[in-house]
Nucleic acid binder design. Structure first.
Lengths: 335, 335
DNA sequence: CATCGGCACTCGGTAGACTCGAGTGCCAAC
DNA sequence: GTTGGCACTCGAGTCTACCGAGTGCCGATG
């Protein structure tokens, strides 16, 4: 529906506005000679583009600024492929080469890496457990009536569940529960196997029941707030002139649940980019989100993303997110 | 050295500047009749206070603004005791009444509570382990040559250490290591007991050695970055007009190690308040930190704190930090 | 001798007037 | 369809003047 020249003009306006942050006028579009028409013609086209909803006017006699729809068009028609650059590639390589065992730490550092690659805030959602197998299980007594159930997964993650111990539960019962859990769960995929309860030992059966409930209940409540790692929030401070915007964005980033749902919403879109209003959160009207899932063995287990202003460098962010998510997946598969 | 009236004037200047953020003039000080002298006299006194280093001048013909020393005097001579208020007390009560088992979650929520009580950023440093006993130990294999060592502590916290498994380590060896660790460590205070290595089983001894090293090494490296919980960072956005200040402060808050050392530095001071330059971090020249330790059984195990602008409400922050730290300690003792 | 009223002076902030420049939209001409 | 020309708009910057909240100093006073 947009002819060739209008497309070029629109792209140019968006690109330049991303670069400068200023409204773009007709003469700027024409300046570098890529389009061989006069400013007047460009003006006419820009008026059309505005009527179609791709551009706006802050006020008469200012240049044009892209709308969410304009950015959307721009992103859907990006031609530059991978723009991460020599230096960025190397940093990602080094990072994952040096990455050591501990999962939480690695995910946290990954969010920092992504933030420093893109200069925006970065989010890493920890891998879900569906495809992981149980390496080890442990029930232990903390206090008179309080216990802790630990499930160690094959990627080194640990699920922990606080449980209540009935007064009748002796240490011997805890010990047999451990044996039973080990026998029944180790090697299985998490959350798949319902626990068999021994008919002849009521205390043991009760304890196992509590454990089973704890695990099931918590799987419902996923994702846990501590499964999200946000890095580079400080960078948001410079991206917006209005203090209030900064405050609102930061406060969104503090709410893990919102962040997770943002990412998973965005994952369902083509191109994995949510622009301004597309995020579905009013406070993020001036922000865009770029996400990518990461996989272990062809299975999507988590997502990483970048949160920046709508006028962000999409090509670069997409490249960074793509590279990091791919490497992260590989790393997790290898571990 | 400061006579009575100068003291009153200084306090009044600081209090008013905290409230309004504006430089305070001589007539403001006199306005409410608490000091029965003329503005001219106040001016003379303020000039003295300036010579002594308690106040400054943004420029001639502006009112006075407190220096770090002025704030210091103000804080050291606070007369209002506890200013948390009915409502705040109730919220703290409710919070700790509703607090449930899981440690990490509770600490994270505590930082949010403190932030919302004070309207500044809040920091909670997780309890150290010195006084805790080991409830359970577990070594498990994750992959061919990777394992995980878990130590469950009496407060529900979990220490985890990634370890390397030599190719010679069979599952049977892992099993005996588990038995040995359980036997030797359960019930002991963490980090106190050196592991006895069996002379007759070289593989087992080697594995136990690796475990011992992991635990010792990590105790050195304490505090771990994930032992710090920062809440309410969004609130910092409004506290400073200069974007750059906001950026710098946020970036400090992202560096867990710096945050921890800030808190422990501040803990050594009287009154547990570090003002501006006293923090020792250049980027925090316009910030103050209010901290309080929390204890379990008369032993200091951690600290909580609040980070705000130098012109923060010290009375309120001190009260909030005191109340929350006390309740947190009690909660941890009870669990 | 501390306190006070008076006075000259300083300086930031606000408001108004003016200009400049980068834009636009429209129109008539090619 | 494209273009150059033209009138118009509006934000941003500059300059000016002025106001008001301050200060510092000085001489007077109890």
């Amino acid at each position: 529906m947009l002819d060739d020249r209008k497309t070029t003009i629109l792209k140019k306006v968006v690109a330049e506005h991303i670069e400068t942050g200023q409204p773009v006028g007709s003469s700027h579009v024409v300046r570098d000679g890529a389009i061989d028409v006069s400013p007047a013609t460009v003006r006419a086209d820009m008026a059309t583009l505005e009527r179609e909803g791709y551009l706006t006017h802050p006020h008469t006699s200012a240049g044009r600024v892209p709308t969410d729809l304009g950015y959307r068009f721009f992103v859907d028609h990006l031609d530059e492929t991978s723009a991460l650059g020599r230096d960025g590639e190397r940093r990602v390589d080094q990072f994952f080469a040096a990455a050591h065992g501990e999962l939480e730490r690695m995910l946290r550092d990954t969010s920092q890496l992504l933030a420093s690659l893109t200069d925006y805030a970065a989010v890493v959602v920890a891998p879900t457990h569906e495809t992981l197998t149980v390496c080890s299980v442990l029930v232990t007594r903390l206090a008179e009536q309080a216990g802790l159930l630990l499930v160690v997964l094959s990627n080194g993650a640990i699920d922990k569940y606080g449980i209540e111990l009935a007064p009748s539960v002796t240490d011997a019962v805890v010990e047999s529960a451990n044996a039973a859990l080990r026998e029944q769960l180790i090697g299985t995929t998490v959350g798949q196997t319902p626990l068999r309860l021994p008919p002849d030992a009521p205390e043991l059966a009760a304890l196992l029941g509590v454990c089973g409930q704890a695990m099931a209940g918590s799987t419902m409540a996923r994702p846990e707030p501590n499964d999200v790692y946000v890095g580079g929030t400080a960078r948001m401070a410079e991206q917006f002139e209005a203090v209030n915007t900064v405050r609102e964005v930061l406060s969104i980033l503090e709410q893990s649940l919102v962040v997770v749902s943002l990412l998973s919403d965005a994952l369902t879109r083509e191109h994995s980019v949510a622009i301004g209003g597309e995020t579905g959160v009013a406070s993020l009207a001036e922000c865009s989100i770029v996400v990518a899932p990461y996989t272990v063995g062809n299975e999507v287990v988590g997502a990483i993303g970048v949160l920046g202003p709508t006028r962000m460098n999409y090509a670069h962010a997409l490249a960074a997110v793509a590279v990091v998510s791919q490497r992260l997946g590989r790393q997790l598969s290898a571990g």
